[in-house]
Nucleic acid binder design. Structure first.
Lengths: 208, 208
DNA sequence: GTCTATATCCTGATAGAC
DNA sequence: GTCTATCAGGATATAGAC
């Protein structure tokens, strides 16, 4: 990659960061190119040298958001003798924390806050990849005997999707910015993980 | 209530209906008073005779939304010999259907799509009431022996909140308008209900 | 109660000079 | 690449006549 491309990529990063900052403050729909340019010390038309439109900018935030969020999913360690329930609980916490710290991306990823905008098929691919990764982890857990072999892997993946979407949505709408471990999440994260493992796990565990 | 009040209430209803229509089409944040007035055959300033501001209009849609949605929660029948799992599954379907048919209200209720708007404390009371109703149903189910008496009622209520928020969010963001029974919801509604009952129910049931 | 007229400010996007 | 200038339109909200 040549020097110009590096420099260009850096400007793109800066634009995305400024845009995310604006959206985090006033909600995703409050994104305005004028405000982004202002914070960067540029004029609005200059932004069009890097993005074709406001929608393309949203697309890129959405795409990178799923890319980064995917690392959280992937960081759930599935090992033969690990405590899957605790890993899952940790994953819920991490997701909520991530959504707090990346509100702009999270709103675009889990809601549909921008009038007349929806992610392009290309951007949507990044989201699909995360689902696919999750599906892989479920299969792995099954092969290790941590999750019931007779349960439908697709079903478990969908159920996990609902749980993660649920906690993130509640966090963003009810107490944005409140740290996961001190907020409402702490009241149900472990309960959700327990419930999932109780239904789909193989271990018989005592329940209070 | 005098004739003028009746007439006034009817106009208020019509404004709310028009506003909901606009928001349903382009997303909640696409609400514009000009467009509302246009559809009603009025001028924008006339709306200010009924609502003090755009925010107040959102507040009222939010408040009425929770009021109406509360009827779905309340319609989950908890009877001593009823099948609670099936009632819960039906409740999930009904919620998704309701969210589809009342997209404007649902977006305001479960997301935070309008820049710089958040529900007033008064409007939020309607939401709290629904949680309280749910909590009551959980207690009732416990007293009937349908849910474990040794489980925390608050915890179960919170868990249910996450499940309902999760399915509604996924519906609104992934396939708005698609009927619940023919969409993705059909792939996990019963699985979620099963999972909840498996963990918190008293019956021992065979699981495939 | 509803209107016209207006204040004030914002938006995304483009043309073309430098 | 970035700028100035501008287009064409939108928004919420208010003042005051009828």
């Amino acid at each position: 990659m040549g020097k110009v491309e590096v420099r260009r990529a850096r400007v793109v990063d800066a634009i995305l960061a400024a845009a995310a900052e604006v959206m985090s403050e006033g909600g995703a729909a409050s994104l305005s190119l004028g405000e982004v340019a202002r914070r960067m010390g540029m004029r609005t038309p200059s932004l069009y040298g890097y993005f074709g439109s406001r929608a393309e900018l949203c697309d890129e935030i959405f795409r990178r958001g799923w890319l980064e969020y995917g690392r959280i999913s992937a960081s759930i360690e599935v090992t033969p003798d690990g405590e899957l329930g605790e890993e899952l609980c940790q994953g819920l916490y991490d997701s909520v924390s991530w959504a707090n710290e990346h509100r702009a991306a999270a709103e675009l990823m889990f809601w549909r806050p921008i009038p007349h905008w929806e992610p392009s098929p290309a951007a949507y691919g990044a989201a699909a990849e995360v689902v696919s990764t999750t599906r892989g982890l479920v299969g792995k857990a099954q092969s290790f005997g941590l999750l019931r072999a007779d349960a439908d892997a697709e079903e478990m993946t969908e159920v996990l999707g609902v749980l993660f979407t649920g906690v993130i949505s509640q966090q963003l709408s009810n107490e944005p910015g409140v740290e996961a471990r001190s907020g409402r999440t702490s009241r149900y994260a472990s309960a959700l993980a327990d419930m999932f493992m109780h239904r789909y796990g193989t271990e018989v565990r005592s329940t209070p």
